[in-house]
């Protein structure tokens, strides 16, 4: 066990809806501090894969380990693992009846049972981390998409997760708002947060990922570092897919502009 320094291990995940196989055996391991980016065409099972990791969707087969503890088949302990596995959704899913700060603190109060003052302090600290402290008392309906997504990232961060799953966090956003969210995510990556990111933002993938995994038809078809993907022609499928997005090859140039 000691030699095993993976924070997250995903082993041979299978999932079918009816007779439609959505995931056909997906495996990968994640080290602490890594950012893994999943790309691929629509409907290839990327969201399903993320949801299988925190068991929002139950896989038919395969196992998931967090710090060598089994997440799959963990019964009610799943609620413990979900605190350790944050999730950020395409449509934010902020709690509509709660202000930004209460969105962040509600799970601290009800799940972690923190006392009110400590929870508030922690929530404000996480909002600061995503640059939303001035909006603490606003309701979701009063926030732009980019602001709402940053609050939802703060909400995930507040649980002190070991890893955060991002499912197309910027797909619902205008380009300008996309930038502010990606900026937050880049900072998290720099600060050593472990992240799995499903995205169509190729410049983000090429500049931030430790590894890019290309999925098609429920399988990981190709995987490599951004440098390999950029330079090695044998990453044929992935290069073709990325080529459809305009900024291939100049991805890293967009960082920190």
């Amino acid at each position: 066990m000691g030699a095993d320094k993976y924070i997250l291990r995903v082993e041979d995940i299978h999932k079918a809806y009816g007779d439609r196989e959505v995931l056909k055996g997906v495996s990968f391991n994640v080290r602490k501090g890594e950012t893994k980016v999943f790309i691929g065409p629509s409907g290839t099972g990327k969201s399903t894969l993320l949801r299988c990791i925190n068991q929002l969707t139950l896989p038919d087969q395969g196992r998931v380990f967090l710090n060598d503890e089994e997440v799959t088949n963990s019964g009610t302990r799943i609620n413990y693992f979900r605190q350790k596995i944050g999730m950020v959704f395409q449509n934010f899913y902020l709690f509509d009846h709660l202000t930004a700060v209460r969105n962040v603190e509600v799970a601290l109060l009800k799940v972690k049972k923190m006392d009110a003052a400590a929870a508030r302090e922690k929530a404000l600290e996480e909002l600061r981390r995503v640059g939303m402290e001035d909006w603490a008392d606003h309701y979701p309906a009063e926030l732009s998409g980019g602001q709402a997504q940053r609050v939802s990232i703060a909400r995930a961060l507040a649980m002190d997760p070991d890893v955060i799953l991002f499912d197309e966090p910027t797909s619902a956003l205008d380009p300008e708002l996309t930038r502010e969210v990606l900026e937050v995510m880049k900072n998290l990556a720099r600060q050593g947060m472990t992240m799995l990111v499903v995205t169509h933002e190729m410049s983000f993938a090429l500049s931030v990922a430790n590894e890019i995994l290309f999925m098609e038809h429920g399988k990981i078809i190709e995987r490599g570092t951004p440098a390999q993907v950029r330079e090695d022609p044998s990453f044929e499928r992935m290069r073709k897919f990325i080529g459809k997005f305009a900024d291939f090859g100049e991805g890293s140039g967009k960082e920190d502009d």
């Binding site: 925190n54 929002l56 009610t76 609620n79 413990y80 693992f81 979900r82 605190q83 944050g86 999730m87 959704f89 449509n91 899913y93 902020l94 709690f95 509509d96 509600v106 799970a107 009800k110 799940v111 939802s152 909400r155 995930a156 649980m159």
Partner: peptide, 15 residues
Amino acid sequence: GQMTAARSLGMSTPQ
């Protein structure tokens, strides 16, 4: 999405 987000934070269904 409201239930999904709540569950993803570790809330039980009753919570």
